[in-house]
Structure formats: C-alpha cells, structure tokens
Design a protein around this nucleic acid. Structure first.
Lengths: 264, 264
DNA sequence: TGCTGTGAAACAGTTCACAGCG
DNA sequence: CGCTGTGAACTGTTTCACAGCA
C-alpha cells in the first residue's frame, strides 16, 4: 500500500467514498484497454474481472457516479471512460514537477503512465548542480534554485518528491509555499504539511515489510501443520520463523503480559 | 494507497488486523530513529506524532501485539523495536529478486531501505541479453533464463516485478512456479495468481490520479467560494490548473494504457 | 430474461472515553 | 498523577440479495 493523506475531515463534497475513488483509476485502465479493442459495452461481471474486484463492489462504486449502465446490457465503454475521466479530473491538464532526479526520479520521468493520463511533467528538479542541464527523459534537469519560479510559471499544483529522506520535508515546504497543494511522496519520511494539502506516500520498504509479515504467517502455518505431531519447537525450514511463542498471545487482556520472548 | 493484495479469504489464523499490519512498518521506522538517538522510552502521544497517526489508534494497534507498555511511563523503545520486528518477520533474512532492471528496477536495487531491514537482494534479473552481466548497484544483472535456478538456489519467496506491463503476468507465473509466494508488483497490470500467493501493487499513475481527484475537488470548492462574492474568473493564485480542451469527450485513442517503466 | 442499481445486513477500522495500573 | 489498554460507540466499506428496468 502506499497510502496516506492528510485529510480535511468533513469535506464530503459530492460524497464519493475514498475507497471508491481509489478504485476508479483501476476501472479506467481496464476500460481503456477495452476501448482500444473497440469493445462497445461491458457487463459489471466482465469489467470487475478485468479490474480485479468483485462485481457487486464495482456496481456500487459506479452507483456513486450516477446511473451509467443499461439493465440487461451493461455499460457503454466509451461513455464510462469519459465519465470516470471527468470525475477524476483527467479531462484537464495537470502539470507536475518531479523533485529529486536519481534513479527513481528518472524512472518516474520516463514513466509513460504519467503523460498518458492528463499529467504533464512540467519540470525535473534536482539540488545537485552537476545534474543541471542534463537531459533526462528528453528534458533538461533544472536546479532547485528555480523551484519556486517553475511552479509559479507553470501553475503547478502537484509535486512529486523523489529525494532522499533528509531533504523531503524541506522540499515539501518549498513546494507548498510556492503553491503546490498535492504531493506524492516517495521519500521514506512522514511529511508534515498544513491543512488543505494532500499527501500520498509510496513507500517501497513498507510494502515489502507487509509482504514479509504475510510470508512469515504462511511459514508459521506450514510449520504448525507439520508440527502437528511433534510438540517440540524445533528450528523450522526457511529462515526458522519463530513459530510457537507468538501464537498464544492471541486474546490479550485477561491474562498477564508475559511476552513470549525478551529482547536482547 | 497503492495497495491491494490478492487475499486468501479464510486465512484468519490470528487476528491482527490488516490495517494495523500496514502501520507497523511506520511505527518501526519512527522507533528506529528514536533508538538511534538513544531515547529510552516514548509515550503513545510522541510516537504517534512521529509516525503521523493519532495516539488512540497507535495504542489500539499495539494492544493487538500484546501489552508492551508501562502505564504512566510509555513504551520501551528497544523492546518495541524488537517486538515489531519479530511480528513483521524482520528478524529473519528475506532474499528477494528484482525482475526488470530499467530505471525503476535500478532504483529499487539501489534503495537502501531494502537491505536495512532484513531484505537482501539475491539477484537482479532482466530479459534483455544486453543487460546480462552489467553491474547495477554493485551486482551483475542476470538473464531471465536463470530465473528458476536463482529462485530455487536462494530459497527466494518474495519477488519484485518492475517490468513493462506486458511482461508482468508471465513473469509472475514463472516466479510462482519456481516457488515465490509473495509479489510486489510495480507494473500497471492486474496480476492473476493462485490462492496462497500474496500480491501487493504499487502503481504510480493511480496515486497521481487520486491526487488529481482531490485537487479538482479543491479547485471546485475554491471557485464556488470565490463566485459567492466576486465573479471574476481570473488566473487565481495557487495552482490555477488550466481547463484544457474540456471537450475531449471520448478521450482515448492511442495512448496505450500500460506504459512501461522500462526495459524490455 | 439478464443485468443494473440499491437497500439492508455484515464486517472492518477508527475514535471516544475512562478504568486501572505503575 | 500520567499514561496505557480496552470496551463501546461510531463511521466507513464490503457483501448480499433482490426489485425493477431495458
């Protein structure tokens, strides 16, 4: 996951649930693919499968946008593409700046998905003077000195931070001061921003850690199944996941603390 | 968020809520920073601020792990670092392979956050023969032919896919067949995988689209507020996003969804 | 008849507020 | 007294199941 936004609480403008908003881009992608294959209509069942969700959820999601389907038939692909694009604000052009042009910043600059959906990379910015002028993704990197000017001149309201963690907070402050109100943060830091500014974060190591958690759980179950006969906690297969101890902690509360293992 | 996992339905082995799991890495990061500064204890309030959540949520989260705090005092930093690491499975070593070594793959390979938390990049794999042998992040890229062997030899259970969208499904199938059971997918595609395999996806363009939605909402409110008094449609200060050809009704054409991040 | 649109039920996650322990 | 741990209330999300329209 990679999520998180500093939200204002009650701004239910036209009440589309956040969870639904997060899925619209997914539907849009699936619909775009259908559109390219000139498929005229699609049922909730088919589209849901393409988007990787279940059909009831999809229908409920679309119901928040309005009634765009036809009973007994399905949804008109082109029409839905348009409606979702409009709802997401993709019928307008969003200039974006990317700050921090390392490997990640370069990857983002080259990412086709940006340009293809209403987003336009207005500038690439890096603090390293040696980077200035170098072309990345066919565009010269500009020095951080220019940050404010670039943002103002281009009316940029969305900034992408791909700097090292240490620079991220400061960069965000400059972006915001210059007029940016939405930030996509790839730096592994919690940004603190004023109200009214949205931040979403994408954190690679967090995603991996979540996977590790589930992976460990699988290993534990496996081991538990194996150990159904031998009650002795032996070092198990891959990596020797600590199997026993944690399990009984299940329902905390009544019994004392008694942590399974003490720290070093 | 960029999140999503193909979840197995009934595997509720032990109730630690998914939302809590997703925050543990955040707490861990904040705690690690405190630990480095040799701070011995921390209150839920302080730690919550550092992690960017509220303290009630943090306490509730920790309560699922057990009772690791001391009333009137707070939490022991070192102890908590250990407990969370253990819960996440970070006390063991997780070999990881990265498939698709373009800009993004290289960024991932160079990403310090991997190595620092129990993850070890076991191999970099790319389908382009021209890449084979090239060093990236101090490690030679290996050809995709070797994929199965590498996974088996290293006992890899986590794979990272950073290929173009078109290759992702096939890569995932090979990874899974060879023994991988968790995948972090950066390609803008819905992977379909068998039960028991976890997939998390990180999708740059989806994140941006979600931001655009909120950005648009802000612009709408602003305009409404302004219109209440002075109906002057001038370029307003912050961010004035141009309303481009509002007419592009059936936007869509050849923009190829599925933009690739990198190599072939 | 087939599929959408949607109330209502079930579930998950968050916040409140306070009892109780160190 | 201060801060944790946690029931209970609440808010948000998903799923169910079916009425109703093309």
């Amino acid at each position: 996951m990679a999520t998180g936004r500093t939200h204002r609480p009650a701004t239910r403008s036209r009440g589309i649930p956040e969870a639904t908003v997060a899925r619209l881009p997914l539907y849009l992608r699936a619909l775009t693919a259908l559109s390219e294959r000139s498929v005229p209509t699609v049922s909730s069942e088919e589209l849901a499968a393409a988007a990787g969700v279940n059909s009831a959820k999809l229908r409920k999601d679309f119901s928040y946008l309005g009634s765009y389907g036809t009973r007994g038939v399905g949804y008109d692909v082109e029409y839905l593409v348009y409606q979702i694009s409009r709802e997401l604000g993709l019928t307008q052009d969003w200039p974006v700046v990317i700050v921090g042009i390392g490997n990640l910043g370069a990857a983002l600059a080259n990412y086709g998905g940006f340009a293809s959906r209403g987003f336009r990379v207005a500038a690439l910015i890096d603090a390293d003077p040696a980077m200035a002028g170098k072309p990345v993704a066919g565009m010269p990197v500009q020095h951080a000195d220019q940050l404010e000017k670039i943002i103002e001149d281009n009316g940029v309201s969305i900034g992408v931070i791909a700097t090292p963690a240490g620079a991220a907070q400061q960069v965000s402050e400059r972006l915001i001061a210059a007029g940016v109100t939405s930030i996509l943060n790839f730096a592994p830091t919690v940004l603190s921003v004023p109200d009214g500014v949205d931040v979403r974060k994408v954190d690679l190591s967090i995603e991996l850690q979540i996977l590790a958690f589930h992976e460990q759980r699988k290993a534990g179950e496996e081991a538990a199944a194996e150990a159904a006969s031998s009650p002795s906690p032996t070092a198990s297969g891959v990596g020797g996941a600590p199997v026993g101890g944690a399990e009984d902690a299940g329902r905390k509360g009544p019994d004392g603390d008694v942590p399974a293992v003490m720290p070093a």
